[in-house]
Design a binder for these strands. Structure first.
Lengths: 200, 200
DNA sequence: CTGTTTCAATACGCAGGCGTATGGAAGCCA
DNA sequence: TGGCTTCCATACGCCTGCGTATTGAAACAG
């Protein structure tokens, strides 16, 4: 066999998606400002020349990465948990799922890091709005008033955002909580009113 | 009195503290990376020449700002609230005070933004450790087990960190909560076990 | 009035990152 | 074989920010 017809090109060419994926990882780890063309090219083993063939400029890459994330998002939360009937269960499942999706949590925290950046603001705002609205609905479905539902949803969301910010900034601080599910259970117990009175 | 003896110089010279204060404000608003010598000099109406007379380099300014913040910190929380006898009240007062000190909350959130920076990490870590430890003690004083106290303290701290992160990143999201004290009260109610059963 | 100290302006060199321009090599197509 | 397309390298100019060196000017001290 005259060599199994290697890859089309002797050395595989980079696709646009390769760049986006690399950028996404970089954002999750070091934030937007770390997405620099030249270092990124270096890491991918090519030069700027390649980048500027695939993209018009740096902004285009950043937007592509954020866009990809947002797509995943909408495909995720809202659609998956709206199906659960019992609102109490829905809330708990939602909470657990949110905290367990560490990948997503890290990316979200990274966006918070770059929240000043006008490019990320719209994405951050939309994600927050969508999640918060979903939480409010869930709490209202439990019979809570608008005000109460808002407060609780915000509390839950702040606890979520704060958790992943801490995970990012001072992961040592979380070592105390080896049992994440216990932590989340406590959050759920604290926020979701029990059917029957539920002692701590 | 023959003119209140104007300022020593016709145009007031900048002090080292002026630079530190300006840097502190900048950090609170835009994070560490915004503390750049030349733009800062421009904002203060002078040039780099002034800066490098007062400071050895950029790092020295940053450390000075962080140091000043840390000093305020230790002078604050620990000393002021350890005096309150009733642990239940102590916790609530602490929570309210923490959320009401918006200035400090913003600065803390800004540090979270720059959490990758090796210069801020130690400060962030010490602040987190101190506050968390204080919270754990407070909860333990209520008779909770070590594990429970840790979980609740972390929960409270995450809610705190998350709140100010949201305030920073998507302040619009918090407009729903016009009543901050109601929000904090809910947090306190959720986390501090009531003496007698305490309906929402 | 002279010298010293304190604070600041100016000018310079350097590095990193963006974007452009241009050339080139490998595959595909005829 | 020649040409077109795809992907990338190289080289360049630009801007921003750091840090240094040197000069300068106002206050103070004698």
């Amino acid at each position: 066999m005259s060599a199994p017809k290697k890859t089309p090109r002797s050395i595989v060419p980079l696709s646009r998606e390769d760049w986006v994926k690399a950028a996404t990882n970089l954002i999750a780890q070091e934030g937007i400002q770390a997405v620099a063309v030249e270092p990124l090219a270096l890491a991918l083993g090519v030069t700027k020349g390649s980048f500027y063939w695939h993209f018009h400029n740096r902004d285009e890459l950043i937007h592509a990465a954020l866009e990809a994330w947002e797509q995943d998002q909408s495909a995720d939360v809202v659609t998956r948990y709206a199906g659960i009937e019992d609102p109490r269960r829905r809330l708990r499942v939602l909470l657990f799922a949110a905290f367990e999706d560490v990948e997503n949590g890290r990316f979200f925290a990274a966006l918070g890091v770059s929240s000043e950046d006008p490019r990320v603001q719209p994405y951050l705002w939309r994600a927050t709005e969508r999640r918060l609205a979903f939480g409010v609905e869930a709490f209202k479905a439990l019979g809570l008033s608008e005000t109460e539902a808002r407060q609780r949803a915000l509390l839950a969301y702040a606890a979520y955002a704060g958790y992943f910010q801490l995970l990012r900034a001072t992961p040592e601080a979380l070592e105390a909580v080896t049992d994440l599910s216990g932590y989340v259970r406590r959050l759920a117990d604290a926020l979701v009113p029990a059917k029957a009175a539920r002692p701590s």
